[in-house]
């Protein structure tokens, strides 16, 4: 049976698909307004330095935790992750802030901060590694700059990174700590973290176990931490982590750390609390 107009229908469909493809490729040629690519890694690192040195560390409330046991543990975890991250343009710096909040955040330029309250809630170094891998994911995917561009606009960011408006730095810092990543960004950071954990011979299920713990705490805590507030839909994230299949050659290598001892040093009275200058 001859179908009336079939040939013309196919040509029309072809025209529509071709148009779509043409515009698909044409749209890639235009630099997007408010695109993170307009801020270079060097500019981002400079912004990170300004924010950390001139705002965060100058805040009297900021207390960086330093003690030998903690530092050594952080170094071991950081080294394992960064050795397996592959080519990266960031010089990562991971520091512990004294605060009971269960939180971690990433400043531009690969500056990651973990709150001691979060470390206290982890049961193993693997769980902390999962959180750090997630934060590294945000940095690698340039979510932090993306969020700043979205919230403040490219013009303001440019004026700061080119040395002009230092008065805006506290505002930028506030934006970073008070606004949230969207779900897609969280998912991207999770997926990055799961891959990184697997490559680093760390069981990706550590991520699920930490999320589950956070979920359990959520109901009991009044000061709902940002980590929880900004990470919606924990159930799907736990599921995502549990369903993650590491590469065939994956072999778990546990951290040789006395984690209870590390946590003790955080809560111990004699913890040296210094303020970095």
């Amino acid at each position: 049976m001859k179908i009336v107009g079939l040939k013309q229908l196919l040509i029309l469909a072809g025209v529509v698909v071709s148009l779509w493809l043409v515009f698909y490729f044409v749209s890639a040629q235009f630099p997007k307004e408010n695109s993170v690519e307009l801020i270079s890694i060097e500019q981002e690192e400079k912004l990170g330095r300004l924010l950390v040195d001139d705002v965060l560390l100058k805040d009297p409330k900021t207390k960086i935790l330093n003690n030998e046991t903690l530092d050594s543990a952080m170094r071991i975890i950081q080294k394992r992750l960064l050795n397996n991250i592959g080519p990266t343009e960031y010089q990562y710096s991971i520091r512990v802030l004294e605060s009971s909040e269960i939180n971690a955040f990433t400043m531009p330029g690969g500056n990651i901060f973990v709150f001691s309250g979060l470390i206290n809630q982890t049961e193993s170094p693997e769980e902390l590694a999962a959180v750090l891998a997630h934060e590294i994911g945000h940095a690698e995917k340039r979510h932090v700059v993306g969020r700043l561009v979205k919230e403040l606009g490219i013009t303001i960011l440019f004026s700061v990174v080119t040395g002009g408006d230092a008065v805006l730095l506290p505002e930028i810092s506030r934006t970073i700590t008070s606004t949230v990543f969207d779900r897609q960004q969280e998912k991207e950071a999770d997926d990055f973290a799961l891959d990184l954990l697997s490559k680093s011979n760390i069981n990706p299920k550590a991520m699920a176990s930490f999320f589950r713990k956070i979920d359990a705490i959520t109901g009991k805590m009044d000061n709902l931490s940002e980590l929880i507030a900004t990470h919606p839909n924990n159930n799907s994230r736990i599921k995502n982590a549990l369903e993650y299949k590491p590469a065939k050659e994956f072999k778990e290598i546990a951290f040789d750390l006395n984690w209870a001892r590390v946590k003790e040093t955080i809560s111990a009275e004699n913890t040296m609390v210094t303020k970095e200058e």
Binding site: W20, V22, Y24, D182
Partner: peptide, 15 residues
């Protein structure tokens, strides 16, 4: 929050 402007969307819009 889950939907973003993408190249596919721009392609569709142009079409």
């Amino acid at each position: 929050e889950d939907w973003h402007v993408s190249q596919v969307f721009y392609g569709y819009l142009g079409t």
